Computed example of a mutant assay.
Amino acid sequence: MRLEYSLFTRLVLNLLFWVFYFVYPFLRFRYTGEHSITVEEIVFYLLLYGSVLYLNNLVLLPRYLQNHHIKKYLFTLLPILVAVAFFEAYVNKTLLKTCSCEGPNSTYALFNFIHLGVLLIMFSAVPLIRHYSTKLKALEKAETERLEAELKFLKAQVNPHMLFNSLNSIYAQALKNAKETPEMVLKLSDLLRYMLYEADKPRVELEKEVDYLNDYISLQQLRKSGIKVDFLVEGKLEDYSIAPMILINFLENAFKYIDPFNLKIDLELKAADNSIYFRCKNHFTHKPVSLGQADEQEGLGIKNAKKLLNALYPNKHELNIEKGEGIFTVALKLAV
Rank of each mutant, 00 (worst) to 15 (best):
M1K: 11
S6E: 10
L7S: 10
L13M: 10
L16M: 12
F22R: 01
V23W: 15
R30A: 12
T38D: 04
I42F: 04
V52A: 10
N56W: 00
L58V: 05
H69C: 01
I70L: 15
I70E: 05
T76K: 10
L77W: 11
I80R: 08
E88F: 08
L95K: 13
K97L: 11
C99P: 00
G103Y: 09
Y108G: 11
A109T: 02
M122L: 15
A125E: 06
L128D: 06
K135I: 00
A138V: 05
E140D: 05
E145A: 12
K152E: 11
V158M: 09
N159L: 04
N165P: 09
S166A: 14
S169P: 11
I170P: 07
A172V: 13
K176S: 14
K179Y: 07
S189E: 01
D190W: 01
L192V: 15
Y194K: 01
K201A: 13
K201Y: 03
E207D: 15
G226F: 07
I227A: 06
L232F: 06
V233G: 09
G235H: 01
D239A: 14
M245R: 00
F250M: 15
N253V: 09
F261C: 11
K270A: 12
A272R: 10
S275K: 14
I276F: 02
F278E: 05
K281Q: 03
T285L: 05
K287D: 07
V289D: 01
G292A: 04
Q293T: 13
Q293H: 06
A294N: 15
Q297V: 05
G299E: 05
I302Q: 07
L308I: 09
L308N: 04
A311G: 04
Y313Q: 12
P314T: 00
N320S: 10
